[in-house]
Nucleic acid binder design. Structure first.
Length: 113
DNA sequence: AAATTGACGGTTA
DNA sequence: GTAACCGCCAATT
């Protein structure tokens, strides 16, 4: 099993565990999967993720809190779960990461700061 | 094999 | 707060 495929599987497992009303960034997922530098691969994993897995990919945003480009409906899905997405002048949607980011990162002392 | 692209992240100006 | 630049890894052209 190639590392990439294992990484993909791990990413899917993590995304599936994201609680309702919380979000994670690609970088966070990559880090949790054990590959800190593979944030882009996390995005690719979502891109190729089979719909049969029912992954809550709408709970995945960028590290800046920006919602996923090329996917406008994500805001509606998040809003349905209580995640408030603010709309910018250029139609950019962003969420408050400090508030909605999955707390698994905060559990680690020392790195949270 | 080389260059380009992408659902990214972080730092610097 | 926005913009530009660099670093990162894999797939695609």
């Amino acid at each position: 099993m190639p590392d990439t495929q294992q990484f993909f599987a791990d990413v899917y497992g993590i995304v599936a565990q994201i609680p309702r009303g919380k979000v994670l960034s690609y970088g966070d997922i990559a880090r949790l999967a054990g590959w800190p530098a593979r944030s882009r691969l996390a995005g690719r994993a979502m891109a190729v993720a089979p719909a049969s897995l029912h992954l809550p990919c709408h709970r995945v945003v960028t590290a800046s809190g920006r919602l996923v480009p090329h996917w406008p409906q994500q805001a509606a899905l998040l809003a349905a779960e209580g995640v408030e997405a603010k709309t910018g002048k250029h139609g950019e949607l962003h969420v408050d990461m400090k508030k909605y980011r999955w707390a698994i990162m905060d559990v680690r002392p020392g790195e949270a700061i």
